[in-house]
């Protein structure tokens, strides 16, 4: 019990951010129309590529001689960049198609 209370006390700011951001995430898409389900999924998929930042940080703070971290981190950056760039580009193509269909 004390363990849990200490945990909450020590991480209160982080927990607050997580809870509030969860509500924001739910609120901003609550009224999305059915036609936009797939583009929204694709667009938010591109945003989840934000994990690329983690791979960049991982490399920047690694030891210069730690080649395993450098190589694996680079692989991570490359994969996440495919997710980011490909994700936004595919979403853009989807929405272009959507616009033409509408008109």
């Amino acid at each position: 019990m004390e363990l849990i209370l200490n945990f909450i006390e020590n991480n209160l700011a982080m927990i607050t951010i997580l809870v509030l951001a969860t509500f924001v995430g739910i609120e901003i898409i609550a009224k999305v129309p059915t036609v936009l389900h797939t583009p929204l999924m694709s667009g938010s998929n591109a945003i989840s590529g934000v994990v690329v930042i983690g791979a960049i940080i991982m490399i920047l703070k690694a030891d210069d001689a730690d080649y395993i971290t450098l190589v694996v981190g680079s692989l991570g950056i490359a994969l996440a960049m495919v997710n980011v760039v490909g994700g936004f580009a595919v979403t853009n193509r989807m929405l272009e198609m959507f616009k033409k269909k509408k008109k």
Partner: peptide, 10 residues
């Protein structure tokens, strides 16, 4: 978490 939360709702 924005993607995580909105993804579950979506």
């Amino acid at each position: 978490i924005l993607v995580g939360a909105s993804g579950i709702l979506l």
